[in-house]
């Protein structure tokens, strides 16, 4: 299922764009959550939470799914595979868990944004949820930075599945080479 080089580059470009875009949007989310939690001006606080809801639904959620999908295409369409290398497995886990947690997190985002839309939020209103928004966003940012780091450094390490596959393909190549040599005239 290997992609040709042009298609591989296109898929890689898409994956990088969506993944780094997701990271950038989470960074914005951290800023908005900080403003919402610590802002003095009621209008600014309200705007921050309304912007968070829009950012989450229209940027974070689509980009998280796009990153996951393009990551799967990249893994399955190249020699890297999905379960052969530990760094790929970890990136997949990070992406899936982060996407699921983001969807769960949307309830809190919606609740706080809804409250902000209905009335001015006093500094003591919904403190737990507002702190959670900031903490979750900061954790997501850290986790996505780890994912980017794994992508760049690609630390070595084959899983058992990858190790088995590699040795089987070596054995096949050795056998083919032996048979080819045996067919050569003396």
């Amino acid at each position: 299922m290997a992609m040709n080089p042009r298609l591989r580059r296109l898929a890689l470009t898409a994956h990088i764009t969506f993944s780094v875009g997701w990271l950038g949007a989470v960074a914005v989310f951290v800023v908005l959550a900080t403003v919402g939690l610590a802002g003095d001006n009621a209008d600014t606080v309200r705007s921050a939470y309304l912007a968070m809801e829009l950012t989450a639904w229209f940027i974070l959620v689509p980009l998280s799914f796009a990153s996951l999908l393009t990551g799967l295409v990249q893994a399955l369409g190249t020699a890297w595979g999905l379960f052969r290398h530990y760094w790929v497995v970890f990136k997949l886990l990070i992406n899936v868990v982060a996407t699921v947690l983001l969807l769960v997190h949307m309830q809190v985002v919606g609740h706080v944004a809804g409250a902000a839309a209905r009335a001015t939020l006093a500094s003591g209103d919904l403190v737990g949820m507002r702190v959670q928004l900031l903490a979750d966003a900061a954790a997501a940012l850290l986790v996505l930075i780890v994912a980017v780091t794994l992508s760049v450094y690609k630390p070595k390490g084959l899983t058992r599945y990858g190790w088995r596959g590699q040795h089987e393909s070596r054995a096949r190549e050795r056998l083919a080479a032996t048979e080819g040599a045996a067919r050569q005239p003396a």
Partner: peptide, 11 residues
């Protein structure tokens, strides 16, 4: 995943 893995990841 710009580079393909080396043919043999281990010695």
């Amino acid at each position: 995943m710009a580079d393909s893995p080396s043919r043999f990841d281990a010695t």
